[in-house]
C-alpha cells in the first residue's frame, strides 16, 4: 500500500481555489444570514401581525428539511420562479455558484434567527423598558440598546453555528460545484488517488474547524467574565450546541 501524497502537493493551487470558494460561501452566508436572521428575529420578537407568523413558518420549514433538499429546490426552482417574473417568461439560468450563495444565506438565516430570537428573549425586560421610558424609537431601541447586547452574548453560539455552516458548504458537492471537497474529488477521481485527497481534505477541515472551536471557547470564557445579566447566561447554557 503506497500512497502518493506528492500528487496532493502539486494540486495545491487548484485545491486552494476550491477552499477559497468554501470560505467565500461561508462568509456570504454568515453575513447575509445574520442580517436576515436578525431582522426576522426582531419581527418575531415584536409580534408584527402576519409577518411574525410568516417568519415562524419559514424558520420551522428550513429547520425541518435537509440542506441537500433545499439546495435541490433552489437549484431547480429559483430559475423557473425568476423566469415567471421576467417579461419573456423564460427561466433565467442563475448558475450554480449564485444559487449556492442565495440558498445558503436563506437556509442559515433560519438558524441565526433562532439564536438571535433566544437572545432577544433573554435580555432583561428592564432594558426594553429603560429604552422606551427614555423615549427611544423602536428602531433606536433595537439598534442601540438591545441588539448590541444580544450579539455580544450570543457571539460564542454564532461562531459555533458558523463553523457548522463552513462544514455544510461541502454539500455543494451535490450541485457539482468546486468547493474544497469538490476540487479534491475532481482530481482524486481523475487520477484515482481517492485516499490521498480525501484524507487531506479531512485533515484540513479538522485543523480549520478545531481552530474555530478554540476561538469560540475563548469567546465563551471572555463572556463569562463580563456578562452581568443572569437570564442571558441561562440562554447561553440552553444553547449548548447551535443546531442539529
Amino acid at each position: 500500500m503506497s500512497f502518493d501524497f506528492a500528487a496532493v502537493v502539486s494540486a495545491t493551487p487548484y485545491l486552494l481555489q476550491g477552499l477559497l470558494f468554501s470560505v467565500e460561501l461561508t462568509l456570504v452566508a454568515m453575513i447575509g444570514g445574520m442580517l436576515l436572521g436578525t431582522f426576522m428575529a426582531i419581527i418575531r420578537h415584536m409580534g408584527v401581525p402576519v409577518a411574525a407568523e410568516a417568519v415562524r413558518a419559514y424558520v420551522t420549514l428550513m429547520r425541518s428539511i435537509p440542506l441537500i433538499l433545499v439546495l435541490f429546490w433552489f437549484f431547480f426552482l429559483v430559475p423557473l420562479l425568476l423566469g415567471h417574473l421576467t417579461p419573456t417568461g423564460h427561466s433565467i439560468p442563475l448558475g450554480p455558484r449564485f444559487t449556492a450563495f442565495i440558498t445558503f444565506t436563506l437556509f442559515e438565516s433560519a438558524y441565526y434567527a433562532e439564536i438571535v430570537r433566544a437572545g432577544l428573549k433573554a435580555i432583561d425586560k428592564g432594558q426594553y423598558e429603560g429604552a422606551k421610558a427614555l423615549g427611544l424609537s423602536t428602531s433606536s431601541m433595537y439598534w442601540s440598546v438591545v441588539v448590541p447586547q444580544v450579539l455580544r452574548a450570543t457571539a460564542p453560539i454564532i461562531v459555533s453555528q458558523t463553523i457548522i455552516l463552513f462544514q455544510d458548504t461541502a454539500l455543494v458537492y451535490v450541485l457539482s460545484l468546486t468547493d474544497f471537497l469538490g476540487a479534491a474529488a475532481k482530481i482524486a477521481q481523475r487520477d484515482s488517488k481517492l485516499v490521498e485527497f480525501y484524507s487531506t481534505v479531512a485533515v484540513v477541515y479538522l485543523l480549520i474547524c478545531s481552530m474555530g472551536s478554540e476561538l469560540s471557547e475563548r469567546f465563551r470564557k471572555k463572556q463569562g467574565q463580563r456578562s452581568s445579566n443572569g437570564r442571558l447566561e441561562r440562554a447561553k447554557r440552553m444553547f449548548g450546541l447551535a443546531r442539529p
Binding site: Q167, L181, L194, Y198, S210, S213
Partner: peptide, 23 residues
C-alpha cells in the same frame, strides 16, 4: 469528540466509503 465533530459529515462518509477499503 474533537475529530468527529470538526470534520464535515460528508467528508467522513467519503472516508468510510472510499478510503477505508483501501487502507
Amino acid at each position: 469528540v474533537q475529530v468527529f465533530r470538526n470534520v464535515p459529515l460528508l467528508v467522513q462518509v467519503f472516508l468510510w466509503y472510499f478510503v477505508l477499503p483501501e487502507v
